[in-house]
Design a protein around this nucleic acid. Sequence first.
DNA 1: AAAAGGCCCAACCGCGGTGCA
DNA 2: GTGCACCGCGGTTGGGCCTTT
Length: 477
Amino acid sequence: MRKGQSDLSLVEEVGRRGNMRENCHLKKGPWTSAEDAILVNYVKKHGEGNWNAVQKHSGLSRCGKSCRLRWANHLRPDLKKGMFTPDEERRIVELHAKLGNKWARMAAELPGRTDNEIKNFWNTRIKRLQRAGLPIYPPDVCLHVNLSQEESLASMPNQDSFGSNLLQSDAFELPHVEFENLELNQQYLSYSPELLNIPPKTIGLSHGYGHMFPMACPPKHLQESVSNYISMPNQLTDFACEEHYDDPCRSASPYDSDFSTNDQSSFGIPPGTDGLLSSDFSPSEPLSGPMNMELPSYQYSDYQQDSWVNTSVPLPSVESVVSLILSPPMKRAKSDTFTPKNSGLLEAVVYESQKLKSSKDESHQQSSTLMLDDVADFPLKDCELDFEAHCDSNSPSAHSAASALSEHSPGSGSSSDEAQFVESILGCNGKNETPNQSAISGLDDFLRPGQRARDKPIVTDVIAALLGEDTCTSSTF
DNA sequence: AAAAGGCCCAACCGCGGTGCA
DNA sequence: GTGCACCGCGGTTGGGCCTTT
């Protein structure tokens, strides 16, 4: 545009070319170069801000919002145009792993890039990657973020005050979560009042979540990454091999075993089985907050695409269970003191069960030997803490036992053979699977939300088997 | 060559936060 | 304390372009 050209003449030009109808109507749609010129002119004269005044003073028939957006995304002189460089791409991935869908914050870290640009890039990228069955986050990024967050965890004051800090911290913003579903959970878990020492309905679990699970309960975006590993056996073996096992960082996470254990196929979960990972959990109430803003659920693997129906979370269920089951006793034995690292809900459940069981007749003891021993020494208080963390619906594990138990509603999903399942749980199905694998497979089926109604009695038995007690005789069920 | 489908990106919408009267 | 205006953020939409069939 020629210098000195008045805003007015530009407006006239806009009026001629654009599809402005009447002055009283604000124009929408694509910006014309004339409009751009007006806006640039205006900002040069008056500076940024006060965007609503643009319309008044410059005659532009655009709302302030639209002007701001146009300026911020396209007209700002410091904007970097063109494709993202590999460095920028990597930075975005890292930032997303750290921040989640905080586009504006990410943009602040990438000079010349806009939040919209980054958002579009990311959305496109994850679509592409997920279509290809590739992980959203490269393992090294996960590890990097995990490590850095672990450091911040390590720098926390003392463990004693952990709980209170946890409840007070605002460091990580996470939504308060409606726990409609949890009411049903309580039906199952009510035998453990201590365990559920939380309001049944709305529970503000956001505080301290990040401390509790530094990346352990990473925002869903990491779950996505994790879930993608399900379809990436090679990466699984690459990343989750033994040298990572004892990595304090990795063991810090309920996802510890994610990479090493989530490969359904390696656990005898047949491809296409809509186990937990693809259970069509769809909360009756939409989850609120940032996590909810994230992708509804791209948590599916290539194996699961057919059965993928709006899966909203359940991935962690398997993780929690699996990490519990597969964690070497040594590792757990070291965990005399609770750390937020332990994936806890199932442990808590199991622990409670142990407690109850020990006060009852021990006739079923044999059937409970699979997993309980490793976790029986977990202090309940710790379990409570842990459970709170898990109850955050954004916590991957929140949907672990809680949702898994609660979502055993009639509906979709094929149920596996119950007898086999129980056998699996008990690790004695006689197949070539290792007991643990069997258990996982069984648990997967057990935890499947879409369990048929007719399975309910079986489910109860299964829970009993899992918990090592006959729930039919238990007053707590 | 044409239709269909997918991709990409600019722009819009709704909501929440903040400042001010 | 309340209402209003403004601003910023994140999710969603719609249209143009490209690729595939």
